[in-house]
Design a protein around this nucleic acid. Structure first.
Length: 586
RNA sequence: GGGCGCGUAGCUCAAUUGGAUAGAGCACGGGAUUUCUAAUCCCGGGGUUGCAGGUUCGAUCCCUGCCGCGCCUACCA
């Protein structure tokens, strides 16, 4: 409604100016919101018109105010120095217009939006960095759904990469465990924590002796063969950890619709289909010599334009120096041994997202939330009846800023294939990482170098097992919330106090992750995160609960109260009430 | 070296994308409240927006050049 009025105002003013100054070349009308509500609901700065109309801004405002006449929905206009025309809307008119039968139909795009977030490597427990991703993604999804958009939430699972391979190495090489022993372990609580520690130990083991890394390479290869036992172990581990991730995120009310896995991208030959198209379109070129000899490469994203106009570096006159520069600009997509890197798989995956690949996943039910919502997973052979994912017009990838280059490479590839429409609707929802303050790292018992101690923050590292696990943080928040609830409400049953504490904790967590702009690094500190006063989630919850309490104390049910107002009062009376002029009391 | 981002009160962060007196929370100072069901309320001090130029009616925001910090820049995923 506000926007509706704003547009009407803008149109009328443009007409007025056009009519009175037909010869002037005028900029578009800009409407702003005044800094304080007392100044009005809309503010129109006159400054842009001052020069072309050769009049002082304030004078101009007066001319317009006198000449405009009345506009439906606008109560009054006011000239304010140094050159604003401030406009107050007619609140009674707005309130009448807001009654359900008159609410202007909002046009909502029927196109489905695909949001990808979380996407944690399924080889260890989730940490605070993953929480930021999931909370940002989930909140964005909620906002989209609030505006009636159709959204599919996807959580991409890289279950065939080195990170999973490393944990497999831990079980098979360091611990010499059999398939069935590992299977027993996956059923124990805290399997993701177990893997967290094991992963850190494997990383150390690699550092002890370079030759130990041979185990990684062998394991990585074995995983790609779907029939091997190693592959079965990898699947066992990654699936168990994945379930833990879903449980952790469910504590924050974060759910997913579909979990596409890299193993299916591999086994259903998504890459082969993409590779053929990329070669045909000339997006990928084969290198016959130089550093990248034998590889299929792509020009690095974002560097192409600045080089156009120069002769190609491999032309006869090109110097060795230019040649080297050209190689720097190349991104290897297919290695000389014929295997494809992760960017290649990502290109194929994104072609699927936009329905441009000509292939589809199989789908299986995987996880059922307590509210009966079903989360699906990719499968080589799927169930017969399944919902349809992919083939959307618009996507958002919630991925941290470190991946921005890879993301633009994928967008570049889509453009190269001629899918400009898709590339334009591909948004990298980029955000910065969560790091730890040196003090926080010390609290956790990590030894910091003298250099690290002077830094504003230190980056977490899964390889070193250095970081704060998501569940640990949530547990700590619940404990401190619980002790407050215990002290304040001793008469409540313990289960109820526990449930209240959990709600306060998740609110605190979600608010903490959202209170920063996404492009600033969060330097995590327990003191800040566990604080429940000031600008925090618990404070916002407190305010809402207090308002409800006041209703309760007065013997009025808040929901019934608002329903009653809607029933008993005519829209006109309600409008008068909102205006607050007659001091109606209830 | 190149690319992306950041630099604002003592600390942690905002600022509707170029608008009116740069705002919050913590901390600090002062006052109120003595508690019947979610964690009290009010007031105050505190700023050369990293530095130097430029663009214009107007710059925390755009441009140029510096300074400082972080991330990315693998035939790893």
């Amino acid at each position: 409604m506000y926007r509706h009025l704003e547009q009407r105002l803008s149109r009328r003013l443009a007409q007025f100016l056009q009519h009175n100054y037909p010869d002037a070349d005028l900029p578009a009308v800009v409407i702003e919101q005044p800094p304080r509500i007392e100044l009005g609901d809309f503010a129109i700065p006159m400054f842009p018109f001052a020069k072309p109309l050769r009049a002082a801004p304030i004078k101009l405002a007066e001319i317009i105010r006198a000449g405009m006449g009345t506009i439906e929905g606008i109560a009054e206009m006011q000239v304010v120095p140094p050159g604003y025309l401030n406009v107050r809307m007619d609140r009674a008119w707005v309130a009448r217009a807001l009654t359900p039968e008159r609410k202007p139909q909002q046009r909502v795009s029927p196109d489905k939006i695909l949001v990808e977030h979380t996407s944690i490597n399924p080889n260890k427990a989730a940490h605070i960095g993953h929480l930021r991703n999931a909370v940002l993604g989930d909140t964005f999804v909620r906002l989209l759904r609030y505006t009636d958009r159709q959204v599919d939430v996807q959580n991409y699972i890289d279950n065939t990469g080195v990170q999973v391979a490393d944990v497999v190495v831990g079980f098979t090489h360091l611990q010499k465990k059999s398939f069935s022993e590992i299977e027993t372990l996956t059923r124990q609580p805290g399997f993701d924590y177990y893997c967290w520690d094991l992963y850190a130990r494997v990383s150390q083991w690699y550092e002890q002796d370079e030759r130990n890394k041979l185990a990684r390479t062998a394991t990585l290869h074995a995983i790609e063969d779907a029939a091997s036992e190693t592959s079965a172990i990898a699947d066992l581990i990654s699936t168990a950890v994945l379930r833990r991730h879903l449980e952790t995120m469910d504590r924050l009310d974060i759910e997913y619709d579909f979990l596409p896995r890299e193993s299916e991208i591999l086994h259903l030959h998504f890459w082969d289909a993409a590779f053929a198209k990329l070669k045909d379109a000339g997006v990928l070129t084969y290198e016959n010599e130089g550093k990248n000899k034998g590889c299929w490469v792509m020009r690095r994203a974002g560097t192409g334009k600045s080089r156009s106009g120069e002769p190609p570096a491999n032309s006869p006159g090109a110097s060795a120096c230019e040649r080297a520069l050209e190689e720097e600009d190349q991104k290897v997509i297919v290695r000389s041994n014929g295997t494809v890197g992760y960017v290649g798989k990502d290109i194929a995956y994104h072609m699927w997202k936009f329905g441009l690949l000509g292939r589809d996943f199989g789908y299986r039910k995987f996880y059922r939330y307590p509210n009966r919502h079903e989360c699906w997973i990719s499968a080589a052979e799927g169930e017969k009846d399944h919902p349809h994912f992919g083939g959307v017009a618009e996507i958002y990838n919630v991925i941290d800023a470190r991946q921005s280059e890879a993301q633009s490479t994928v967008i570049e590839a889509l453009r190269g294939l001629g899918h400009n429409e898709a590339a334009d609707h591909y948004t990298h929802f980029s955000y910065e990482m969560v790091a730890l303050t040196p003090r926080c790292a010390a609290e956790l018992g990590y030894r910091l170098s003298e250099e690290d101690k002077t830094r504003p923050y230190v980056e977490v590292s899964g390889r070193k097992g250095f970081g704060i696990k998501a569940d640990d943080l949530l547990d700590r928040l619940i404990i401190s919330a619980k002790s407050e609830v215990d002290a304040r409400h001793p008469s409540l049953r313990d289960a109820e106090r526990q449930s209240i504490a959990a709600q306060i904790a998740t609110g605190a967590m979600r608010h903490f992750m959202l209170k920063y702009t996404k492009q600033s690094v969060i330097a995590f500190d327990f003191k800040e995160a566990l604080s429940f006063e000031g600008e925090t989630g618990p404070y916002a919850q407190y305010a809402a609960v207090r308002a409800t309490s006041i209703f309760k104390k007065a013997g009025i049910d808040a929901d019934a109260f608002s329903a009653e107002i809607a029933n008993k009062m005519s829209p006109a009376d309600f409008a008068t009430f909102l205006n607050g002029e007659n001091g109606i009391e209830f």
